[in-house]
Design a binder for these strands. Sequence first.
DNA 1: ATGTGC
Length: 470
Amino acid sequence: MSSLKINGKKLLEIGYPQSPVFRIAMDVIEKHYGHYTEEEAIALLTKVLADPAAYADDAILGEIAQELLVPAAPAVIALRETPVPYSVYGESYIEEGAVKQLNNAVRLPVAVAGSLMPDAHQGYGLPIGGVLAADNAVIPYGVGVDIGCRMCLSVLDLPVQTLLMNETSYTKQLMTFTKFGAGAEWKKREADPVLERSEFKEIKFVRNLFDKAAGQLGTSGSGNHFVEWGIATITDPQNEWQLAPGEYVALLSHSGSRGMGAQIAGHYTQLAKEICPLPEHAKHLAYLDLDTEEGQEYWLAMNLAGDYASACHHLIHKRLINAMGATLLARVENHHNFAWKEMYQGKEVIVHRKGATPAGKGVLGIIPGSMTAPGFIVRGKGEEGSLQSASHGAGRLMSRTKAKSSITNEVLKQQLLEHGVTLIGGGLDEAPGAYKNIDTVMAAQTALVEVIGQFVPKVVRMADGGPPED
DNA sequence: ATGTGC
């Protein structure tokens, strides 16, 4: 018995789509029509392609026909040749990969304007430190994997000397009331209004995340997340709280929406990629139209994740402030991975900030440095060029892998010693040397924010160093 | 970033 094998090129010539049907057609011919000549087989396949419905119930050819009846994948959406306007702050400090990514983003059909912050570096889709305004559409990876990743600073009434002279109780409470690590959960759960939200009932995908969210409330996760005690210095006499300029004990935290947000990000970006196929080099920028059910659902889920991240910070701060018997004097907090409905040139747009601090006129924010470098309390200037945004930190100088291979434990220890910083947990990938100089970054954005105070870390807790290399 | 896979 001879066994006929159909050439893929022939299938293309007669108009077969490059889909699973290719493989199926080849297999069916080889298995059932091995005695045919190539001409006969091609004639048969041509007839099936011309009218697949007529063959749908055929015992043998039905397999091919049914695959042909599957609706074709939507055509790839082309990027525009001409970008919309975009600005770059601190261009000389920004790696090429980040600029290339923004260049794709400002060519999306829904793009309105873009901006790159001075701490920008390459990410997935939109770069970290990237800002993009879109027309009635939301890009899940324009928000990022950690939806609602944010900062929270509490300025307290504790005497500064208590932290500088004896940090024992600060360290002890940090160990008791913070929890780090991927998947970390508290054994004893706390009630919180965010867990009562109707989205947990109304959105099917979100419903399944409730248990994880309830267990992880008030935890910090891993990576660059931290909770730290330090000294805040208020420098602006005209500050919003009428605090006397000077030094205060303060608590600073950095974390996001934990597993819940990560699952939401993953689910809706997958959905976006199916609905909105973009060219390969821009595929992670897939967006959801806000007038669609999927877009609406993501918007609600994203906002829930943002509020959940906020609740996590508030619980951490409440527990630590209570444990120290302190009173809250001032608080500054902001998301830096999120999307907002804002006005731009008289029109409502969706502003994505992925690793960028909102900096509308008079809006307060906190931009952290590193575990040994100061962070800054800032007041936005409402600069339209940056879409009313600023950097979200110093930005990475080295990738995690590069930091782990080029920074030593001795160097890190020496830096901590020099700055009088106690580090609990943490890995070399988060060492100060892995980050850009925060002063340089701040100098590149004087048009975007004014500094009204700073924060110097003293006792820092992070997740233990990353998992062992494979 | 997340606890588990182009």
